[in-house]
């Protein structure tokens, strides 16, 4: 019965994206610019540093936030990634993850704070976050490529969209979990809105916010393979390449390196959250 009664939504969306590309190209270039700078900075920096120094830096971070055992574990794991012959790719992935997470934090924490303090904003942003998390990444890869072309920057953008929801959600949750009496007490002693936020709500929400950051990092890592579809480099590319050429060994070492890296980042950021 629907043969001749189809809503041409697909046509409309295509037309809309085409129109965006034609008319607002400069806007998207402006969005792209800071991400590109950050990413290139990290990528060049991490790849230029001697691997041993990077390993030691990561171990020191692990030691500061957790302890000697995590430091040793991180050292061994990172060395293993190097021994798999994927050091360069893993540094590119780390740079992409770091860039994505930095922008997620810059955008996500303030949004989460607003959502935590305003029921109306929370109600409005919640469906948007649900959509961002549940829409298959492949759906928005095409418009992203059209708007930002292929490559690492487009990959980071896709990663940001996919991995920003947890930090917004958990920041909002953290702010909401602060006891209303504490906020009331601060107000009773003459705290302004900003002081309530800075001295009471944010410090007390910090463990939850850091848990959100940890989730965001994990989601960002899980996007690297998908980002490789649109030409992003890093650990995703050996996996993609392996899949395309049926080179199982290659795909597996790529996957293994991603898992190892995820474990290290997860442990370090988790101990950050617990330390607070």
């Amino acid at each position: 019965m629907f043969e001749d009664k189809v809503i041409p939504l697909d046509v409309w969306v295509s037309q809309f994206v085409d129109w965006l590309v034609d008319n607002y190209r400069h806007v998207f270039q402006a969005i792209k610019w800071p991400i590109e700078q950050t990413l290139n900075g990290f990528d060049t920096g991490l790849n230029a540093l001697p691997p041993l120094l990077v390993i030691v830096l990561i171990a020191v971070a692990a030691w500061r936030f957790s302890g000697i055992s995590l430091a040793i574990f991180s050292m061994i794991t990172m060395t293993l990634i190097g021994l798999l012959g994927l050091w360069g790719e893993s540094m590119t992935t780390l740079a992409m993850v770091l860039s994505a997470v930095i922008f997620c934090a810059i955008v996500g924490i303030p949004l989460g704070i607003v959502a935590g303090r305003s029921d109306r904003f929370e109600a409005w942003i919640r469906p948007a976050l649900d959509a961002m998390q549940t829409t298959p990444a492949f759906v928005y890869l095409v418009p992203i490529v059209m708007l930002f072309s292929v490559g690492n920057v487009a990959g980071v953008l896709a990663t940001i969209i996919f991995s920003i929801p947890p930090i917004i959600r958990l920041t909002s949750l953290g702010i909401r979990q602060v006891h209303p009496e504490l906020v009331e007490a601060a107000q009773a002693f003459g705290a302004t809105n900003w002081q309530v936020l800075r001295r009471v709500q944010v410090p007390l929400a910090m463990p939850t916010i850091l848990a959100g950051l940890n989730q965001t990092i994990m989601m960002a890592l899980s996007m690297v393979v998908i980002a490789a579809l649109i030409g992003a480099g890093g650990l995703g590319s050996p996996v993609m390449l392996g899949l395309n050429t049926l080179d199982i060994g290659r795909a597996v070492i790529g996957g293994l390196a991603i898992v190892l890296m995820a474990i290290v980042l997860d442990r370090i950021t988790q101990s950050m959250a617990q330390k607070r």
Binding site: H179, L182, A185, A188, F189, V200
Partner: peptide
């Protein structure tokens, strides 16, 4: 003000 629940930070 002093609160029933203490409300200390």
């Amino acid at each position: 003000m002093v609160f029933q629940s203490f409300a200390l930070m």
